[in-house]
């Protein structure tokens, strides 16, 4: 089962869990599993089109899935998937 690390600001939408194990073959499987089991988390992960939000980054190990095959990126039994909120802003 792949390990999924939930970032601090989203843990309250996942039963205050920091780490989950999910049976998955791809990032899409993980997104589907999280969306089904944690509906409140879904709106913070996905946009209206069901795509991963632009302010949410997903890493498999040290690699951003946007540099791999996005949601089709393969996941292995020992993969560690980190959900990383983009932190940005500024005045004006």
């Amino acid at each position: 089962m792949a390990t999924v690390i939930i970032p601090t600001p989203l843990r309250k939408f996942a039963n205050n869990t920091a780490k989950l194990t999910i049976n998955a073959a791809s990032i899409q499987d993980i997104v589907n599993d999280l969306s089904f089991n944690y509906p409140d988390l879904k709106r913070h992960l996905l946009d209206e089109q069901g795509k991963i939000r632009s302010f949410v980054n997903v890493f498999v190990g040290d690699d951003d899935i946007r540099d791999l095959q996005n949601e089709n990126t393969a996941v292995k039994e020992d993969s560690v998937i980190s959900i990383v909120p983009a932190i940005a802003g500024g005045n004006l």
Partner: peptide, 19 residues
């Protein structure tokens, strides 16, 4: 916020995280 008040901008808001 250099030379601006400590009030969040729209740019701050859209990227902000809950909690």
């Amino acid at each position: 916020h250099p030379n601006h008040p400590a009030i969040p901008s729209e740019h701050d808001r859209v990227a902000a995280q809950p909690y």
